[in-house]
Amino acid sequence: MTGAGLLLALLLAGPHEAQPAASEPAAAQPAHESPEAQPGHEAVVPAEAHPPEGAPAAAAEHEEDHGPAAILMHHVLDQEFFGIPSKHMVYFGLASLLVLLVVRLAIQGYREGMPTGLGSAVEALVLFVRDDIAEANIGHDGRKFVPLLLSFFFFILIAALLGLTPFGATSTGNLSVTLGLAAISFLAQQWAGISKYGAVKHFTGMVPHGLPWPLVIIMIPVEILGMFSKPFALMIRLFANMLAGHMVITTLLMLVPLMAAVSPWFGVAMLPVSLGLSLFIMILEVLVAFIQAYIFTLLTSIFIGMYAHPAH
């Protein structure tokens, strides 16, 4: 992805380098140069540019298409992918298949019940989810939720890591997708309570017993709010975390053309800084992928545990 970012940065730098016929390597990409190159220059540095009277409208329109914000948006928003309307859905399916592949390979790596290679790594994560997430927070009932929690964990992890590959996309960086995931988490939470206590007792049990009736009146909407705010928080947290890293990396890489617009040498000077910082954020993103997979799974199991054991 760093490669893609670099390419993007150089392409962006291209038009401005071409103008002064500078010696920067990016200038050797005239293919990108188009009749809109000049307005593009103005779009990148609107505060400095003083376009002619008739230009603002064209510049604004172009800003929407090729300006930094548009590029940033283009990078994080869903888009068409080889004729398929949603790239995020493609990567969603890819992540699912990858998880299936990894787990099947892990299973095949078992020799006489002992894991080898990939199996050891997968088993360590599986045991972690089973023992330290599911059983620790749900209790013994947690066993039946382990497959779902494992699916969440591995899917979110792989989807996030896929987003770090060149030309990749993070499907969980899309609010619609995280809404779907949160909805499944919500259903699992409710199912935990309903399957154990029955629908009536599950919903009435949410309000603690022995409260005076004025408090009960207050507690009912509070509990209903709480019921929905839990998955809502899951949805926003995962989405924002997945999105943030990508936006930061793209922004850091765009610093190169932005600085190059001021002076080509500024752009060159910015290259190592920009690449170094985005590499750092990229490594951080690997960590974030694990953390977010853990957080989503952990919180889902905590909420399931709350509905499975409402005695508090």
Binding site: D78, S86, H88, M89, F92, G93, S96, V99, L100, V103, R104, I107, V126, V146, P147, L148, L150, S151, F154, F155, N174, S176, V177, L179, G180, L181, A183, I184
Partner: peptide, 22 residues
């Protein structure tokens, strides 16, 4: 997309449970 996610993830979780986790 949300609906698709719901369905696909449900299918994914189901398949994973049968072929992977179990």
């Amino acid at each position: 997309l949300t609906l698709l996610t719901l369905v696909l993830f449900a299918v994914f979780a189901f398949v994973m449970t049968k072929l992977g986790w179990k």
